[in-house]
Structures are given as structure tokens and as C-alpha cells.
Amino acid sequence: MNDEQLLRYSRHILLDEIGIEGQQRLVNAKALIVGAGGLGSPAALYLAAAGVGRITLADGDQVDLTNLQRQILHTQERIGQPKALSGKMALAHINPEVRVEAINSRLAGDALAALIADADVVLDCCDNFATRHAVNRQCVRQRTPLVSGAAIRFAGQLAVFDSRRAGTPCYSCLFPEADDVEEERCAVMGVFAPLTGIIGAMQAAEALKLIAGAGEVVLGRLWLLDGLSMDWRSVNFGQDTQCPVCASGDVKRSVPAGASPAPRDAGRG
């Protein structure tokens, strides 16, 4: 790192758990953020501010007036613009040293696989189950850590999956893929604006810890937040040995009591 970087990131470098080596890992890292909405906005801003060297921001939607209540990457002046490009502009103002790639489409197939293979960490901030499960499958296949968040109404969720570690669960272990899952949308159900900031910032924190090698991430735990009471609850879960994505075996584990599938509009909020 040069002298300017040492000054910019000095408050990270002062932390024994990060230091110069950890900050250098952040500067060298590549992060993929799937969704530039309610969760992707704070997550992207914190990754950029922290100096993650390359951020790929993928979102196929355009900025809408209804987004501005919580999607803090975007401004009124950028209504109608692609969210990925709007996000790229915002991150350039936060930290011009960070290289941001904007992808104005919903990721799938070979394009998704290539981006995940090239990333050091993936943040799932998307808005539909099909994409969530596709992201999870590729993260397992490529052994890329995945940080998943969700927010709807006043309820938030956070979990981390890291298939580099043997015997750990994947997203499909927790929320098995099914055709009959009813997806909830913020456009219908609503969402408390600061909730997306809380969960998105936590996604950024877990991603930075994964990259820098600092502390312990929330593997095998689903964090549930009730935004009305500000009560947190942690539910432990393990690998499903019959999971079609990451494991095989005879023992079937169900979704933990009290957990619900991530809402469809979790990324947008």
C-alpha cells in the first residue's frame, strides 16, 4: 500500500485483528454483490469505504422513486438509470481507488458461474429465490464464501456459508429449493428502512472478516432480528446430509423452528 492508502485505512490498520496484512488482503480482494437495493446499498458502501479492491455490482433493475426510502446508493437525480450504474457512481464518490464493475442484468448460467469463480466472497442481496439458489449452487461448486441477508417488514435475517470448510451447511440446507414457496415482496408487504441498513451493514462486516481473516463469522447460525423490539435471536443449524447441492447421506435436517425462507424482495427492501 502507498502512503495515501496507509492514511485512508489507518483506523483498520490500528486494529490488531486486521493490521497492515489484513488491510492488504482487503485491497487485493474481489467481491461480488448480487443486488443493488436495500441490502446491497449499505453492503457496497462499506466494502468500498473499507478498500475492497474490486467490487462487482450486479442488478437488472432501474432506480425508482419508491426505492429511495431505503436504497441509499441511489438519488432522485438517478431515477430511471440502471441500479448497477447508479451504484457504481455512488461508490466512486466514496472511494475512487476501488474498481467497480457494473452489470446491468440478472445473473444466471455461465455468466454467474464465471463471476463467482473469480470472486473471493459473494454477498447475496438479491430479490428472488431462483437467483438465491443459483448463487448458492455456484458458491458451493466454486468453494466461494457466501454471505446471505434478507429483510421484510420489520424482520431481518443473516447467515454465512463457506463450503471451503468440510461439513458446513449451504443455503439449500437451511432453505431447501421448492416450487411451492410463496415469495414476499416489499412492494406489497413493506419494509422498515433502517432494517435494510442494519442487515446490509452486517453482511459487509461478515464479508470483510472473511477476507481479512479477522474473528469468527456466523457459520452454522441464522441470526434473526425483530426490528420492532430490537431483539436478536440466533438459531443453530447443520449440514443436511441429503442436500442435493452440498452433501449426501441418510439423515434429513429440517429448517430450524422460527426461521422462514428469505423474502423475495430482501435485496431491494
Results as ranks from 00 to 15, higher is better:
205 A>E: 09
158 L>W: 01
199 I>F: 00
157 Q>A: 02
207 A>F: 11
204 A>R: 01
147 V>H: 02
165 R>A: 15
124 D>I: 07
201 A>V: 10
135 V>P: 03
165 R>W: 12
130 A>R: 13
115 L>I: 13
142 Q>I: 00
207 A>N: 11
130 A>D: 14
185 R>W: 09
129 F>E: 05
171 Y>G: 00
168 T>F: 05
103 I>E: 10
204 A>S: 07
116 I>T: 01
177 E>Y: 15
93 H>G: 01
206 E>G: 06
157 Q>Y: 08
128 N>D: 15
204 A>D: 03
206 E>P: 06
207 A>S: 13
191 V>F: 04
183 E>A: 09
134 A>Q: 11
115 L>T: 15
109 G>N: 05
147 V>A: 08
188 V>M: 01
120 D>I: 13
175 F>E: 07
145 P>V: 14
192 F>Q: 03
113 A>I: 08
183 E>I: 02
102 A>S: 09
134 A>S: 14
176 P>R: 10
171 Y>K: 04
116 I>Q: 04
194 P>G: 09
192 F>P: 07
197 G>S: 05
143 R>Y: 11
120 D>P: 02
132 R>L: 01
154 F>K: 00
143 R>H: 13
161 F>L: 01
106 R>A: 12
130 A>H: 12
205 A>H: 13
170 C>T: 07
188 V>L: 05
120 D>Y: 11
97 E>Y: 02
105 S>P: 00
188 V>W: 04
166 A>F: 00
139 C>N: 10
184 E>N: 06
116 I>H: 03
129 F>R: 08
118 D>H: 01
101 E>M: 07
125 C>M: 06
147 V>P: 03
130 A>E: 12
175 F>C: 04
106 R>Y: 15
203 Q>W: 06
117 A>T: 03
186 C>K: 00
101 E>V: 05
173 C>H: 07
98 V>E: 02
143 R>D: 10
195 L>E: 06
101 E>F: 02
198 I>Q: 06
191 V>G: 00
131 T>L: 13
166 A>I: 11
163 S>W: 11
194 P>K: 04
143 R>N: 14
126 C>Q: 06
106 R>V: 15
150 A>Q: 09
106 R>S: 13
108 A>H: 13
